[in-house]
Design a protein around this nucleic acid. Sequence first.
DNA 1: TCAAAAGTGTTCGATGTACACCCATGG
DNA 2: CCATGGGTGTACATCGAACACTTTTGA
Lengths: 245, 245
Amino acid sequence: MNPRAPQGYDPHAFTPFAVTVDLAVFTVRDGDLQVLLVERGQEPYAGRWALPGGFVLPRESAETAARRELAEETGLSDVSGLHLEQLRTYSEPERDPRMRVVSVAFAALGPDLPEPRGGGDAAQAQWRPFRAVGALAFDHDRILADAHDRIGAKLEYSCLATSFCPPEFTLGELQQVYETVWGTGLDRPNFRRKVLATPGFVEPVPGGARLTGGRGKPAALYRAGTAATLHPPLLRPTSPEGRSR
Amino acid sequence: MNPRAPQGYDPHAFTPFAVTVDLAVFTVRDGDLQVLLVERGQEPYAGRWALPGGFVLPRESAETAARRELAEETGLSDVSGLHLEQLRTYSEPERDPRMRVVSVAFAALGPDLPEPRGGGDAAQAQWRPFRAVGALAFDHDRILADAHDRIGAKLEYSCLATSFCPPEFTLGELQQVYETVWGTGLDRPNFRRKVLATPGFVEPVPGGARLTGGRGKPAALYRAGTAATLHPPLLRPTSPEGRSR
DNA sequence: TCAAAAGTGTTCGATGTACACCCATGG
DNA sequence: CCATGGGTGTACATCGAACACTTTTGA
């Protein structure tokens, strides 16, 4: 805050900025990490894919705006359960060729979300495999890469992975989240022990069991626990690669 | 609305915001964690302490603005070596009673920085012990607490601690950074081994040695290495407390 | 010669890793 | 009865916590 402004800011002391939110929404479908993208309808970057987002309205915070946009873009009526996390703010002067736009970026995670309804205009929205995403509009490549890095890192020391799972899930599904985001394989017995040894990470659903692949032994079901952080962390394999996949 | 906008945004689609930066600048002096604060000269919150900061100018990014403010407030001619890190953005509609202000918060770290020159006006700037900071203006309590949490967490898995040290430092000084920020004691022999076992964390200065407390064996000197992250991390003691202090 | 700070060695339990093995189910 | 995925047991290397001990300096 500028201590030199008399009372009420000097109207010439600041430039007005437009403030937007951009969302990197991830989901795991069919063992594949996917991102929600929209196709731009007009210039600049017409026809290019971009992250969904929009303006922050006069009476809302960036967090509120992000959740509103998330609901609009995914078409979900209840997004209150989805994990939404502020990433960082992108404010390079030239990031939007038209005017000065500062964007607060968010990462959002959800379990196998439904197909998005197309946006109001010609713009369409779609889930795209993360690994196959090409060049995006504006600085959205960078935002998406930062979001993926953050998610990957947070899996190590937080209980975030359960946000990618439905309310009841098997340990195999939870493991697949880690493997899908990290792009590595993990040892199933050790993963299992590690997760169960962390109090509050998951809690068993008493009578639950589900067949996952159609074959094999039915797996026990779990719910997300109350813990938020993982002590000690679940580190991703260091050198070349894990094992089974 | 910006006249450059070609077929740009609908002028009614967005509200203009003022964008500021707020800085939580930490330093370690006399084995104490200190924060740079400014005293506000006028309403609102006249006479209250606040984090330094100011408006983002038309042609600069938030990062550039933060570094400029940092130089102005600390009075240092060269702040290029100081660690500056974006924390998050605070955008609650009512966070400034006068108008809509979105603030990008940064955390900055430096080794035993000089006394700040007072700001141009009645406002004065001072180093204050972090543990003794009272209620600040606006939402700066929250920002400061978030900054401290972030710094503490980053010490665990990054080489950030060297940013609190002068160009050449002893392992005892480095350890004191951890102890000061975390508020715990650490076992010196184990700390030493851990640091030296991490390639690129520190590198020895060939002939260097320094007496730290006036008494005792002179300590070898080290420089910051090239590594940025710590694998494996240097976790802070879990339960009640460490040992020596 | 004592206090204080740096630095080394060693023990022991916890943790992670790799892998062998058994269990339940559908085709 | 075999493939497939869930779940258990175990041996071994590695790491970190705790603490005893030596070294070098100033008073």
